[in-house]
Amino acid sequence: MRVPLERKVLNENDRIAAGLRERFQRGGVFCLNLISSPGSGKTALLERTLEGFDASRRMAVLTGDIQTDNDARRLARFGFPVRQITTGGACHLDARMVERALEGWRVEELEILFLENVGNLVCPTSYDLGEEARAVLLSVTEGEDKPLKYPATFHHADLMVLNKIDLLPYVPFQAALACENARRVQPEIEILEVSCTSGQGLDGWRAWLEARL
């Protein structure tokens, strides 16, 4: 007997993510899921972001890694609430990990919740975390063809942050080609170019965030 179904494989994750999204929306919290390869600069971008916000702002970060709480320690210096999610092997964050990590926080009072995913351009794509927007970071020390190699990740992103642009004079990376490739897999994607070292473009990034509040 064949029973036709339309059950999403990750429906348990999606159910928890929907609950988180409702909480965020009720509280007017802008939740951003940050995805990239290891070493593209997610933590550095968050350091520069938190550093630029006045201490009265209500920002928080959940940062995911397979092991260590190094990122949480780096980010906690700015005085905003930060929690490390150590996945213990899992290559991505899922909604249940986020829900657990938020326990005890008055999430509804936040302005922005940053979810720094595990450094990986494949696995985080499939897992809805209840975020309002998804940003993928690409750095100029990688290949311009990353959007074509990992189309699912770029296709599901609202924003691409091209990082480390201070290194452009020293690497053969063609920024225009990388942007063109990102638009091929996601014609609606927004693109910002930044350097977390020189600070170039960070005003545009902060303005992008503020426009979402």
């Binding site: 064949r2 029973v3 339309e6 059950r7 699912a152 296709h155 599901h156 014609p187």
Partner: peptide, 21 residues
């Protein structure tokens, strides 16, 4: 036309089960 929107391709679904009577 370049005015197009996402339609399909991100499916990850259980589409049927064959069950013993």
């Amino acid at each position: 036309s370049a005015h197009t929107e996402a339609a399909g391709g991100d499916e990850m679904e259980l589409s049927y089960l064959e069950l013993e009577e």
